[in-house]
């Protein structure tokens, strides 16, 4: 049996990698992928906690997180498409005006 702390450490590493990606990259699509990475790290921690406490509510919560993540990706990518139509770019440092 793998100790639960290993799973939590892995979730922390993945979350940190997602944070690095959001801070470093300027392509809006890649930033979105890194946000997905952070959501997955949180999911891993939740599933590990559910296994540790033998309580299924953690897995049910992961199910809801996935639903919200799917909705968020759809809306976010639609926003990226709309921004690309009006600016012609998906680089976040090019999109620096609220209204154009």
């Amino acid at each position: 049996m793998i100790p639960t702390i290993y799973y939590l450490a892995l979730a922390g590493i993945l979350f940190t990698l997602g944070v690095i990606g959001v801070l470093v990259r300027r392509n809006a699509i890649v930033i979105f992928m890194c946000i997905e990475l952070m959501l997955n790290a949180a999911n891993l921690a939740l599933v590990a906690a559910a296994r540790h406490h033998e309580n299924l509510n953690g897995q049910v919560f992961v199910f809801f997180v996935m639903t919200v993540a799917a909705a968020e990706v759809a809306v976010g990518l639609a926003i990226i498409v709309a921004a690309f139509r009006s600016r012609g770019t998906v680089e976040v440092d090019e999109v620096n005006l609220m209204k154009w």
Partner: peptide, 27 residues
């Protein structure tokens, strides 16, 4: 795979179908 090791086969399948399938196809 880690979810399977954590006794969460349903979450593992949803992960493959929803994340690796639907969301990445959207990307």
């Amino acid at each position: 795979l880690l979810y399977v090791l954590l006794a969460a086969p349903f979450i593992a399948m949803v992960q493959i179908i929803v994340y690796a399938g639907a969301i990445m196809v959207l990307f």
